[in-house]
Design a protein around this nucleic acid. Structure first.
Length: 125
RNA sequence: CGAGUAAGACAAGUGACCGCGCUUCGUGCGAGGAAAGUCCGAGCUCCACAGGACAGGGUGCCGGGUAACGCCCGGUGAAGGCGACUUCAAGGAAAGUGCAACAGAAAUAAACCGCCGCUUUGCGGUAAGGAUGGAAAGGCGAGGUAAGAGCUCACCGACGCUUCGGCGACGAAGCGUGCCCUGUAAACCCCACCCGGAGCAAGAUUGAUAUGAGAGCAUUCAAUGGUCGUCCGCCACGCUCCCCGUAAUCGCUGGAAUAUGCAGGCAACUGCAUAUCAAGAUAGAUGGUCACAUAAACAGAACUCGGCUUACGGCUUACUCGGUUU
RNA sequence: GCUGGUGUAGCUCAGUAGGUAGAGCACGUCAUUGGUAAUGACGAGGUAGUCAGUUCGAAUCUGAUCACCAGCU
């Protein structure tokens, strides 16, 4: 995941929290806000309760790696925040990326196009 | 074989595909021994080139090392352990002040009981004995005495002096003093030495907003600020509350650097020569999936170094004690 | 990253130039009441976040460590 897709400023985080709608899964929560213009921006929030710095970094890295193949399919102007929950620490990579797909589908942020979907399927294998 | 003591290095690598940051654009480089805690010491930066006095803080056996240190090395002394070995904030209590609960006759100064003597409602001598206590007037034995007492003597301890050894802390030997002052300085304190303050969110440059709006106080002194706690001294200048705004670049990695060899030193460490350049992010990079029998502990750089402390995995070497066998 | 502060009974807090650790609320028992509340009496509950050190003796002094809280953009 390139740096330019990441959600950075505290202000943007606050705006997304205020405007966005939330969807939950077992190991993470998605907060999403759809704006008309702009690029896709994705932020990750990993709280201190999950563990020490090594654990938190690993969670962030795996979440970033899981979202990367999905970025082209996300609608323009989407601002996303993924909040990690305790079970993600023990979760396998495949489950993480599947639950991300599930959350994005639930939030209706994926573009509907068959070949990209097929690509996603191949990735999960 | 068991129990222990000390020291040391390593704590991940290779390949495939897909990624991330830096970039001299080349498939070049890319977390640790503790990156951690922030407990010390420095570099660097700014504040009056940091001035005076008083506070305040730190260190505290000796010698050496170091840019510096509260760190390290080698010694001395004390304490612990059968031992290998380990630990120690280890100056001064005769400069002064304070504190020592309870118990005990008595706690820093002694006569409550006891013992002895006498001129016996008492007076005097006496610290050998007396359930306490952390600490009770050097210990123990002999002589001595009315009873006792370093009163006298031997040994041990303490203190002082001299000589010798050592750079020194100190040690050894000899002589003398009957021994007149308990503990606590990690209580205040005294002595010696050290410390200006803040910290990369330091600070510099370029922008933007703009001398912003409202309320209160003051308009000579003063007050306030300029990074010291107080005073002096110096400089600047209206101050306080509240609302709005606060971006980018640099600082940012070549350094008391690392590796190897030689030399000096018991060692810590130092000198010389050669070679090398090895993360630099800014919501914060080092990853994901798989294979190699199998990757497992503690753990993630944020200005940089030197230490200390704490967390933790398996391994190697040397030594000590005990048991068994030869 | 840097700088401060706090840990004492179930809860909220006292107490410190070192000497048997206390208050209020809450809890238990008894009294009071026809019964409950309020009230009164009695009682239980702590080794002071943890581990070392100094001291005869540590909640208090010193060091290390753990947890929590606050401030600086």
């Amino acid at each position: 995941m390139k740096r330019c897709y990441s959600l950075k400023r505290n202000k943007e985080f606050r705006r997304t929290y205020r405007v966005g709608r939330s969807h939950g899964a077992k190991c993470m929560v998605l907060i999403s806000a759809l704006r008309n213009k702009g690029e896709v921006k994705i932020g990750f929030s990993v709280g201190k309760k999950l563990g020490n710095a090594v654990v938190r970094n690993r969670v962030k890295r795996r979440m970033r790696e899981a979202i990367t193949p999905l970025i082209p399919q996300i609608k323009d102007g989407a601002k996303l925040i993924f909040i990690a929950r305790q079970p993600i620490v023990e979760e396998s990579f495949i489950n993480i990326s599947q639950s991300m797909r599930y959350l994005l589908k639930k939030a209706e942020l994926l573009c509907e196009s068959a070949p990209q979907d097929a690509q996603g399927e191949r990735d999960t294998q």
